[in-house]
Amino acid sequence: MSDAAMKENMEKLEDFIQKHKNQKGALIPILHEAQELFGYIPEEVQKRIAEVLHIPAAEIFGVATFYSRFTLTPRGKHTISVCLGTACYVKNSKGVLERLEEELNVKTGGTTADGKFTLEATRCLGCCGLAPVMMIGEDVYGKLVPDDIPDIVKKY
C-alpha cells in the first residue's frame, strides 16, 4: 500500500472511529472496518484504536487474534479461499486445496513468494449446492475437480 493510500485509509478509519466510539461494543465493528480498508490490521491502527477507546493495546491484540477474520499481516493481491465445510469436504475439496498448494507452491495459510496469492481454507461459503467450492477474491468457482485448478489460476 502506498503512503498516500495508507494516509487516506487512516483518515477514513478515523472518521469511522469517531462516529462509533461511544456506541456500546464498538471495538469489533471498528476492527471490521480496518480489516476492510487495509486488508489487515496494522500495528499503528491497533494503537490508534487503543487510544480512542481507552482499551489497553494488549486487549485489542487479544480480540484481533481471537477472530479468524482479522489478520495482522498483509495479504497477497488475491485471496483464494477453499471451502472445507462438510458438504465440500465429502466431495473432495481437500484434493482441490492440495492441488492449489502444489500449483502455487505455498502452504495453506501462506502467501506466494511474489505476493500474488494468499491461500486459505475456510468453512462453508453458503453455496453448498455447488460443492466443492472456492473463491478467488469475489469470484466463486463451484463443482470443482483438482484438474480444473491450473487453468483457473492462470486467469489471475
Partner: peptide
C-alpha cells in the same frame, strides 16, 4: 446489526453476548 468475525464458538449464547459487547467470544 453486528457482524461475527469467524469464530464458531460465538454461536454459543454466552460467547455471542461477549462478542456483541466487543470482547473475545
Amino acid at each position: 446489526l453486528r457482524l461475527g468475525a469467524g469464530a464458531f464458538v460465538c454461536g454459543e449464547e454466552t460467547a455471542l453476548i461477549a462478542s456483541v459487547e466487543g470482547q473475545r467470544g
